[in-house]
Nucleic acid binder design. Structure first.
Lengths: 211, 211
DNA sequence: GCAAATTAATGATTTATTCAAG
DNA sequence: CTTGAATAAATCATTAATTTGC
């Protein structure tokens, strides 16, 4: 939990009160504000919590495709991340280099680098590693089953990409078997997306339609 | 199905370079037209990514132990979140009310409310729901096994906490079985842990000791 | 050739497990 | 033992490839 520490420490000073400045992201414009303060805990106002959360999520229902059949392109916030070749290339390189579960800081850096080649967010990087790792594992398992087995990977020789001249920063190859478990602390946080406006106070979410 | 295929290779071809016109929007933020992935990649500076990543080195032998002033976050509160009674109470209330997987906005709000009763972060709320849900499920399963079974929840009269006076916001109890699946889009992001301008690039030292 | 219909990949979420602090 | 935290496995959902009928 390295990053976490940083985080907490920093936050400790202001009790995570999104005051101003801080500059990194837009802070929450204005929380519902809720007239708290009035009473005690019991007064806890549920109303202030739940939000409609946009929702519609476009179901398949009426198809309103009269628009250009061409994919309407990633409007900020519409579709899913679609990595470019460069991005994939870099990610794979890092993966081959041994990276498996980057921590928050690493993710942030990777994201900012990859951002040069196309739109991308931290979570995309995070998911990419999760998925890639899992799928490599599957693939491997399938193979090992089909082909007798050849257990320990042939020690592919890698490589330990050394990246920083300073001492010890190497990516530990982490043997394909992947480390057993390594509790890492990824400090993350939810994004403040504002939206504002209506705020219909829909109580509990309950996403319609399952699956 | 059947033919394997080489996704990646295939992608290399730019056969679909559709109408450059049409999309006023940039279709791809801008793909540097790489001619050959590898070259580009090479230029990529790994140094900027990987960092010693101190820490977790799990079971790390004492080898790299030197300069660690034990500045560990050591926040008095120390490591993990320790919920107060009020916080738990509210969370349980929400849970009983039907909330199971709050989205980012909800989490943010809940967090900010609970913050009044003690230190807390969004992820704590997130994890609480995950764990509580999972453990309730376990508990239930154990019970159902021990006690004949009484499969479908006894339709117990629940509750539907109505919190808003307006029409229809009731919590649908969500059948104890919990909803099957509900895809929600939780938009989150890694936090910018840059706080304060300085930025000595001292990113990694933080996280000494991974737990 | 080309666009709808299929299929393969793979991004994004959720659920199940595991680890470990207290 | 309880439960916060984190990771892995299982799934869902959407996009690109590929195939197919005209």
């Amino acid at each position: 939990m390295g990053s976490m520490k940083v985080h907490q420490l920093a936050r400790g000073f202001w009790e995570h009160e999104p005051s101003l400045t801080l500059g990194c992201k837009r802070l929450r414009p204005l929380a519902p504000k809720l007239a708290n303060t009035d009473t005690t805990v019991t007064a806890f106002d549920l109303k202030t919590f739940i939000r409609p959360e946009s929702g519609p999520r476009k179901l398949g229902s009426s198809d309103d495709k009269r628009n250009s059949p061409q994919q309407v392109e990633t409007h900020p916030g519409g579709t899913r991340w679609n990595p470019t070749q460069e991005q994939i290339g870099i990610l794979e390189m890092l993966y081959r280099g041994g990276m498996r579960t980057p921590n928050a800081q690493q993710i942030e850096q990777i994201t900012s680098q990859l951002g040069k080649y196309g739109k991308i967010e931290g979570k995309n990087v995070f998911y990419w590693f999760q998925n890639h790792k899992a799928r490599e594992r599957q693939k491997q398992k399938r193979n090992s089953l089909g082909i007798s087995h050849c257990p320990r990977t042939p020690a592919a020789s890698f490589t330990t990409i050394s990246l920083d001249s300073r001492q010890g920063n190497q990516v530990v190859p982490e043997r394909d078997g992947d480390s057993p478990y390594k509790r890492k602390c990824r400090s993350w946080s939810f994004e403040c997306l504002e939206e504002e406006g209506d705020r219909t106070l829909e109580l509990f979410p309950l996403h319609p339609e399952g699956r």
